Computed example of a mutant assay.
Amino acid sequence: MKSAIFRPLLEIAAVLFLVLGAARWVTGLFSKRTHVYQTTAARQMRLLFWPLLALGAGLSVVPAVAMGGEPAASTFVWLLTAGFVLFTLLLSGPALLLHLRYWTLNHETTLVFQPANNLLEVYEAGQRVAFERRDLARIERVTCRARRSFWARYDYLRLHLQDGRTVVLTSLLTDLEPLATFLRNVPTERRAVAWCWG
């Protein structure tokens, strides 16, 4: 009975995933490269795909055990279920926390970056953060040391201005390595940490 319900749902999800992926690929061929970066849903899903999949796998076990064929699941089965849920939370939890932290830092941030035209502008809540490249005192480039974790793609760039202000740009906006390369003449402190809490 259960497989009769879930199988068509899984087939529909797989077909939708393939159709949307193909449509994104085709539109990417003909679209103009953007130079304006914001926290888009597509970028967020690219970062959150594996953590959410792991969390969903962990949480999907609980209803399966609760509605299992046995009248009451044994204590051992519940301990195994709790252990599996805890394991998936340990895998996906840090990435979800980082995502929330980065979203609070950059959900109202817009980055305009066009290296060919020597253009770098940052907007917070629609207002331009006034600075030029010569106003940058130093840069902190923080990347994740744990390359095989779900939170490995979360990193940030902290721009320290001469007047004491700081601007934090996270990987929720875009890949930050081209921006760090663009600003290579500014003194840069590069650090690799286990968990990039901005």
Rank of each mutant, 00 (worst) to 15 (best):
Q127R: 11
A116T: 07
A116V: 05
D135H: 01
L89D: 09
P94W: 03
G126C: 10
F113N: 06
Y123E: 12
L89Q: 12
H107S: 14
L89E: 11
A95C: 08
A130P: 00
T104K: 11
D135Q: 02
E132W: 05
H107Q: 15
V112Q: 08
N117A: 02
E121V: 09
W103D: 05
L120W: 03
L96S: 08
E121A: 14
L97V: 14
F87N: 15
L97A: 12
L90I: 10
V122H: 03
T109Y: 08
V122Q: 01
R134T: 11
L91C: 08
L90P: 02
E108H: 13
L100D: 04
L97Q: 07
R101P: 03
Y123A: 10
Y123T: 12
G126T: 12
V112P: 00
R134A: 13
G126H: 09
Y123D: 11
V112T: 04
S92L: 05
R134P: 02
A116K: 10
R133C: 00
H107N: 15
L91T: 01
Q127W: 00
G93A: 05
Q114P: 00
L119Y: 03
L91A: 05
L120A: 04
L89C: 15
L119M: 06
Y102D: 05
T109N: 04
E121I: 06
F131A: 03
N117Y: 01
Q127T: 11
L89N: 10
L119S: 06
E124R: 15
L120G: 01
T88A: 01
A95H: 05
F113W: 11
Q127L: 09
G126V: 11
T110W: 06
F87E: 14
L91E: 03
E121S: 13
Y123K: 13
A116Y: 06
R133S: 03
L98T: 04
L98N: 02
Y123F: 15
L119A: 01
H99M: 02
E121H: 13
E121Q: 14
G93H: 06
R133I: 07
A95I: 05
Q114S: 13
A125T: 09
Q127S: 08
E108R: 14
Q114E: 15
T109R: 10
P115I: 08
G126A: 11
H107P: 13
Q114R: 09
V129E: 02
L111M: 09
L119G: 04
L105D: 09
V112W: 06
E124C: 12
L105W: 05
L100Q: 07
R133L: 10
L96E: 03
R133F: 02
F131V: 06
L111S: 07
A95Q: 04
L96H: 03
H107Y: 14
N118Y: 05
R128Y: 07
P94K: 07
E108P: 00
A130S: 00
L90H: 08
F87M: 15
R101M: 05
P94R: 04
T109K: 10
S92C: 07
L111P: 07
A116H: 02
W103N: 03
A125C: 05
Q127A: 11
Q127D: 10
V122W: 04
L89F: 13
L111T: 05
L97C: 10
A125N: 12
Q127E: 13
L90T: 08
N117W: 03
P115E: 10
L120C: 01
G126R: 12
H107L: 11
N118K: 03
G93V: 08
Q127K: 12
E108M: 08
R101W: 04
L100C: 00
N106R: 14
S92H: 01
R101D: 07
P115F: 07
